[in-house]
């Protein structure tokens, strides 16, 4: 071996099925993870981690469709159920059992709302998945990595936290980085929304005196953190926009927890 060239692969469920294989987990990429330029980097980071630890996974690729979450929250139950049932047909067709996703909205919908429509899966969020990998020792962040002395604050996503009570997993993941973790005033069950949920991401906000993401970023900046860690594609956009609004994009970065782990692994 002369050169350490890493080659990452992304098998699809269709590939797997064709070769008669079955993955351990289905990675549900989500629309933002598939199309949003910033969040595609998160998808890639997570796929690299999956490759790195040697987990047999697959994605749906072009067969995946929006879970219907934004349509449902905006009030369009028809559209939501159309999406849900199409997705359930695909998932059940591949006999999927376990799903991991980096999007708390997909996570909540797949986990809590698909069962009543015939989709029963074990659904975990990538923060929980990464937490398990760290606990099992399959991910070990090397000493002397770029996190020493950095201040990271974690922004709770509503659909991960309040909706599903996942507060510790993302924090445990960040704790493995050996960085300085600082908390905002409103955290966990009292965490302040980034302003994107309930379909807000897809429209202009109603008149008010401030944008929600600016309010939240001000709180994050007040901790003195140089990194805002998120675990949701919509929080990612809202927090990044908020940081830009405060002209802090040179000194404060917004990362998904899986990107930080990938950085720590040199992936």
């Amino acid at each position: 071996m002369t050169q350490d060239v890493k080659t990452y692969t992304v098998p699809t469920m269709a590939d797997m099925a064709a070769s008669g294989e079955k993955p351990e987990i289905l990675f549900w990429v989500g629309c933002a993870g598939s199309f949003d330029d910033r969040y595609k980097r998160v998808t890639i980071a997570f796929v690299r981690i999956l490759n790195h630890v040697g987990i047999k996974f697959a994605v749906l690729g072009p067969e995946e469709g929006c879970t219907g979450d934004p349509a449902r929250r905006a009030g369009n139950e028809f559209l939501f159920q159309m999406q849900a049932m199409s997705n359930i047909q695909v998932l059940n067709g591949y006999n999927v059992r376990k799903i991991v996703t980096a999007c708390p909205h997909c996570f909540n919908t797949l986990k809590n709302e698909y069962p009543e429509l015939g989709g029963n899966y074990e659904v975990i969020h990538h923060s929980q998945f990464l937490q398990a990998l760290i606990n099992e020792g399959r991910i070990r962040v090397k000493d002397g990595q770029p996190f020493k002395g950095r201040r990271i604050t974690f922004h709770d996503s509503c659909y991960l936290g309040r909706a599903n009570k996942v507060y510790e997993a993302p924090r445990d993941v960040l704790a493995a980085l050996d960085a300085d973790l600082v908390e905002m005033k409103r955290v966990r069950a009292n965490g302040l929304c980034c302003g994107a949920g309930g379909g807000q991401y897809f429209k202009e906000p109603e008149p008010g005196k401030k944008d929600v993401n600016v309010e939240r970023v001000e709180e994050a900046l007040s901790t003195g953190a140089d990194t805002i860690a998120v675990a949701c594609p919509f929080c990612m956009t809202m927090m990044s926009d908020g940081v830009k609004n405060k002209n802090k994009e040179d000194s404060v970065r917004v990362y998904d927890i899986s990107e930080l782990i990938a950085q720590g692994q040199g992936l």
């Binding site: 929250r73 509503c158 309040r162 909706a163 069950a189 009292n190 965490g191 302040l192 929304c193 302003g195 994107a196 949920g197 309930g198 379909g199 807000q200 429209k203 906000p205 109603e206 008149p207 008010g208 929600v212």
Partner: peptide, 14 residues
């Protein structure tokens, strides 16, 4: 206008 402004963040419920 009121109902459209909701982010469904469940902070009120909590």
């Amino acid at each position: 206008e009121e109902i459209n402004a909701c982010t469904t963040c469940q902070a009120c419920v909590n």
